[in-house]
Computed example of a mutant assay.
Amino acid sequence: MSENKLGDKALDFIINEMVDTVTNSKDEIFQISEDSRTEFEKLSHELVETKKQVHALINEGDQLEQKVKFSRMRLSEVSKQFQQYSEQDIRKVYEQTHGLQMDLSMNREKEKQLRVRRDDLEVRLRGLEETIDRAEALGGKISVVLNYLTEDFKHVSDALEDAKEKQQFGLKIIEAQEEERRRLSREIHDGPAQMLANVMLRSDLVDRTYRERGVEEAMVEMRSLKKMVRSALYEVRRIIYDLRPMALDDLGLIPTLKKYIATMEDYNKNITISFTSLGKERRLESKYEVALFRLMQESVQNALKHAEASHIKVKVEMTLQSTMIIVKDDGKGFDLNEKKDQSFGLVGMRERVDMLDGELSIDSSPGEGTIVTIQIPING
């Protein structure tokens, strides 16, 4: 058997193994989501009943308080004029007052226990709701991965008949993966990881401040700590959004582009990014929306990282036959004839455009900024 066929079978075996693993993971996540949803419904019903019981106990307690009040007044009156009442009457009034007080005490204790139960149910429901949301989001991402493995990757395998081409393509994928991992590692280390380390230090400071200086100064430190946690959360969400914006599947290309650009402009305070959309907005097939978003994202990231631009303009024009994206910046530009060592991003853009039978043109020169024009024909 030739080396090429051996390579084909090995790659197909790996893909099938990956598909099986991802499918099983998706089923497990779905089961977790369903179990959480069942528990959520059960606890929701229990919470409604608990709130009703709390309300009923509050009303009952209010009535008992009134009865206790009148009984005490009656007891006080009997005590002052005990000559007019028999010992049996006085004992009866006393026992009645005592009994009402015991009923009121038991009522308040039941109410307290039910309030604790109610608060516990609300906390558990919030946790389950977060679990369900995360499971659904993760299930959606796994569906995308599964689609990629079962369709796109198999198309790649069919297209690359030569074992050497497969090896070179695989090396490019590995190189891109490693570069992305290095980037994520740097971003997480410099961002959320560093912030969380500071949170640990500041939490110790809050504890020491509370013990040594009191509640007021400890609250000041707590507010500062809250800001740090909020910043860490913002960084984590930004990194997740860079990996795969869920809005792309839910809302479509144009709203996702608007949100991404607004996020980038907010994150890069010294750069203005404008966005213009022409034509009738409509949903495209997933492969077109993902490709167009990634192409725009790569173009904007190149302008942010390498061009030293102060203004970036993004324009999207949608027609029935095609979609065009233009990204223009006023940065330092570059020589198109000069070979860059780190030009894999542009190579990846060209390969992605070629896969969709589109056109990519880059107009740039030193000191004149850069214009990236991408046009993708839309079939069907």
Rank of each mutant, 00 (worst) to 15 (best):
E165N: 15
E95Q: 07
H55W: 03
A262W: 05
Y210Q: 04
E175R: 08
R118Q: 05
I326C: 04
A56H: 13
D266E: 15
D329T: 01
Q194E: 05
M200Q: 13
N337T: 07
I376E: 00
G140R: 04
R182G: 04
A307V: 03
Y94I: 14
K154D: 08
K315D: 05
V19H: 02
I378C: 03
R244T: 09
K154W: 07
T50G: 15
G348R: 01
I188A: 07
R124C: 05
V145M: 09
N270T: 12
G367N: 02
I378T: 06
D62T: 15
K80A: 12
T276P: 05
E217S: 10
L201W: 05
M228E: 09
V93Y: 10
T50E: 12
E122N: 12
I312S: 00
H98P: 04
D329F: 00
E136G: 13
S71L: 11
G348L: 04
L121E: 06
L257W: 01
M73N: 11
L138N: 08
A56Q: 15
D119F: 15
F169P: 02
T23W: 02
A159W: 07
A262G: 09
Q101Y: 06
S44K: 15
R223P: 02
K332F: 00
G214W: 00
A193H: 03
L251P: 00
L360F: 03
L360Q: 01
G331A: 01
Q194M: 12
Q88N: 07
F344A: 13
E3C: 06
M222Q: 08
V316D: 00
F293T: 01
D341L: 12
N4Y: 01
R230G: 11
D354K: 06
Y241W: 07
A291N: 02
P255Q: 06
L360E: 05
G333P: 00
S343A: 13
D27P: 02
Q301T: 08
K164H: 10
K226R: 14
M1S: 09
L251K: 09
F293I: 02
M355W: 06
T256E: 01
Y210W: 06
K313Q: 15
A176R: 11
S231H: 08
D204P: 02
R186Q: 06
H189G: 05
F169G: 02
L75G: 11
Q63T: 04
D120I: 04
A197D: 07
L360S: 04
Q113G: 11
F40A: 14
E95D: 14
A303S: 13
D62H: 06
F153Q: 13
K172N: 09
D249G: 14
D120R: 14
V54H: 12
K166S: 13
K340Q: 09
L57I: 04
R202A: 04
D35W: 10
V156H: 06
K52I: 11
M264D: 00
T373R: 01
E46L: 14
V220Y: 08
S44L: 07
H98F: 05
K287R: 08
V290Y: 12
E178D: 06
E179F: 12
S79A: 14
N198R: 13
N302I: 00
I239A: 04
Y267C: 04
V48P: 07
V215F: 13
K92Y: 10
